[in-house]
């Protein structure tokens, strides 16, 4: 077995030990201490990144949920406010219209009353005119038919009696 036989050789064990120490030492320093921690750090960084991203996604999901809730509440409130505004505008418009209508009604009624008064005045003046003209005509008729002169006042009274029944 060379592994045992060669132990007798002067150079065998010293060389094995020397080269193992040198090469395994280099492997330990360069790979174990130099490269391994960097690879490990990369893996750790990736694990952390994945965990962070998952947490961030979860947080974003929750934030989106609250925003949606807020949006829904806001839109509900806005809808209610809009409805209220429309209602109040409608009410106001109705009240305004009523007020204007009442005003116009009052104006129209005033105008109507004035017009009626005018008509009544015109009528009475016309009536008076008709009375005087009719009394004159009646006096003339009586004078022409009977030659009797009727006093204007009498004629007026007789006409008034006929006209007013």
């Amino acid at each position: 077995m060379p592994q045992i036989n060669q132990l007798a050789e002067n150079w065998y064990f010293a060389s094995q030990l020397f080269w193992l120490a040198l090469i395994f030492g280099a492997v330990f320093v360069v790979i174990g201490l130099g490269m391994y921690p960097k690879i490990e750090a990369t893996v750790d960084a990736r694990d952390r990144k994945v965990a962070d991203d998952l947490a961030a996604a979860k947080a974003a999901h929750a934030a989106a949920d609250t925003i949606e809730d807020q949006y829904r509440q806001q839109s509900d409130a806005a809808r209610a406010a809009a409805q209220a505004a429309v209602q109040s505008a409608k009410d106001k418009a109705a009240r305004d219209a009523e007020k204007r209508l009442a005003k116009v009604d009052a104006e129209l009624a005033g105008k109507m009353a004035a017009a009626e008064a005018d008509v009544a005045a015109a009528r009475s003046s016309a009536m008076a005119e008709i009375e005087s003209v009719a009394a004159e005509a009646a006096g003339d008729l009586v004078a022409k038919l009977s030659g009797v002169k009727v006093a204007a006042a009498d004629a007026k009274q007789a006409v008034k009696a006929v006209l007013h029944g």
Partner: peptide, 11 residues
């Protein structure tokens, strides 16, 4: 120290 160190196939 009297021990020789060689470059070997093992190395």
């Amino acid at each position: 120290g009297g021990r020789e160190v060689w470059l070997t196939t093992s190395a």
